[in-house]
């Protein structure tokens, strides 16, 4: 669509808590409106991330070109595949994952954030509540799991069930962990639904 000035108009998303709307605006004629929308988008998005329980220090994470510097990035950008970020502590896995979260919010997808240590703690407190805990994330199109760990044999069946549930429902999965799970049943599902990227410092 062309603007009255003759230039091609760009599509700008307007983010609200429950939906994302797109408007066509001209970068030159509507620059102040675009600026206002972008400022508001940023505010709404940060508020959404805060409500989802994202670590405060990562709320400002925004998508950067270098976060897509791996083979297969277009399929993650388009929402066909998820991502498994692995690497040592402090390498920036969670920060990158939150940036991807912001990207999917902008794309209009419903997102959920799972702090895996909290998930396991709740499970240990009362394993009977597992199905209730799992159903908390049913609304989401994309599930972001931070600090994933499948090494504890006592909770493995729950962890497997959770990942298998997301896999069956064809939810997009984004995970961060220090290492990839070794169990074949999990590996198959994670391998099929994510691209595994190891972050190396230096």
């Amino acid at each position: 669509m062309n603007c009255t000035c003759g230039r091609l108009m760009g599509i700008i998303p307007i983010i609200a808590e429950k939906m994302v709307d797109n408007v066509a605006l001209c970068e030159v004629c509507h620059c102040t409106e675009i600026e206002k929308i972008q400022h508001n988008n940023n505010k709404v998005c940060s508020e959404m991330l805060r409500k989802l329980g994202v670590p405060k220090q990562c709320i400002g994470a925004t998508m950067r070109k270098e976060f897509c510097a791996f083979q297969g990035a277009p399929s993650v950008l388009s929402g066909e595949l998820g991502l498994f970020l692995l690497g040592e502590s402090g390498v920036g896995k969670t920060y990158q994952m939150i940036a991807w979260m912001r990207h999917h919010i902008y794309a209009g997808r419903k997102v959920a954030y799972v702090d895996f240590s909290d998930f396991l703690c709740e499970l240990r407190a009362d394993a009977r509540k597992y199905t209730n805990i799992r159903s908390l994330y049913d609304y989401a199109d994309v599930v972001f799991i931070d600090d994933f760990d499948s090494s504890n044999p006592y909770v493995f069946e729950f962890v497997y069930n959770f990942i298998n549930h997301l896999y069956k429902e064809q939810k997009l999965m984004f995970l961060t962990a220090e290492a990839l799970p070794v169990q074949d049943r999990l590996a198959m599902r994670i391998g099929a639904s994510t691209i595994q990227v190891e972050l190396i410092k230096g």
């Binding site: 270098e66 510097a69 791996f70 083979q71 297969g72 692995l86 690497g87 390498v91 920036g92 990839l180 074949d184 590996a187 198959m188 994670i190 391998g191 099929a192 691209i195 595994q196 990227v197 190891e198 972050l199 190396i200 410092k201 230096g202």
Partner: peptide, 9 residues
């Protein structure tokens, strides 16, 4: 099942 890619940060 894995095919790990490397990203230097």
């Amino acid at each position: 099942y894995y095919n790990v890619k490397i990203m230097h940060v």
